[in-house]
């Protein structure tokens, strides 16, 4: 049996708008194991991003238990949470969110600045990551000199460069044309197949979901079995 890598028990999440409590996730129980490639699907507003953010440790549950990469992250302090994210999470955003003032190399290097790696070790890892995403020849390009698909590849390289326990992606192809979207999905599949990366991906796109081996549906804040 593969190790459980994400475990949610009775997770509840609500936001407050003034006095008004807006429940977003109800009684979520789920387990993902190492090496899984999961697609989280569901209508807009069903709470997919919220769930992903909880797993990523960038948001906190209102109630329930959340064990990710062997750590009960609902109990960590802000500082410990940041360190934990740096070690275990690679996050891929819908809009790439690269730093516009840094070129591809520097963007990928960014998370490594938090490590003790030497300059040459960092260089080697960045080159490896950019090689995997197929952008070894674009290292000096700035985000505004890259296509959307290329930007997302850089973002993926940034997410994998620290070799995190878990790759999380929120609609990684949501802003791309069909062709670019397909090649990004191929890339994620390869990361899962060849490199054994555990991936949890939010998506609206049925074709993207095909690439995943597990699909979870969310509806109005609740998991529905499919």
């Amino acid at each position: 049996m593969a190790e459980p890598i994400v475990e949610l028990q009775s997770v509840y999440k609500s936001y407050y708008r003034g006095q008004l409590e807006i429940p977003v996730l109800y009684n979520i129980n789920l387990t993902f194991t190492e090496g899984q490639f999961v697609a989280l699907m569901g209508p807009s507003g069903s709470g997919k991003t919220t769930l992903l953010n909880l797993i990523a440790g960038i948001d906190r549950p209102s109630d329930g238990r959340l064990v990710v990469a062997g750590q009960d992250i609902s109990r960590l302090s802000e500082g410990d949470m940041a360190r934990w994210r740096a070690n275990h999470i690679g996050f891929i955003f819908q809009f790439y969110n690269l730093m516009p003032v840094l070129n591809a190399f520097e963007n990928v290097e960014l998370p490594l600045l938090l490590t003790r790696l030497s300059r040459s070790e960092r260089r080697r890892q960045v080159e490896t990551a950019l090689g995997i995403v197929g952008l070894g020849d674009r290292m000096g390009h700035y985000p505004n000199q890259l296509s959307g698909g290329q930007e997302q590849r850089v973002a993926i390289a940034r997410a994998i460069v620290t070799d995190p326990t878990l790759l999380l992606a929120d609609e990684p192809t949501g802003d791309l044309d069909r062709h670019s979207a397909d090649s990004i999905m191929d890339l994620l599949s390869r990361l899962n197949n060849e490199f054994g990366k555990t991936i949890i991906m939010v998506t609206h796109d049925p074709r993207a979901a095909e690439a995943a081996r597990t699909v979870q549906h969310l509806e109005k804040g609740e998991l529905v079995s499919s």
Binding site: F93, P111, L114
Partner: peptide, 14 residues
């Protein structure tokens, strides 16, 4: 704002 949020996501601290 969003760049700082990204950096925090990557593990940069306040």
């Amino acid at each position: 704002v969003s760049e700082y949020a990204v950096m925090k996501t990557l593990g940069f601290r306040p």
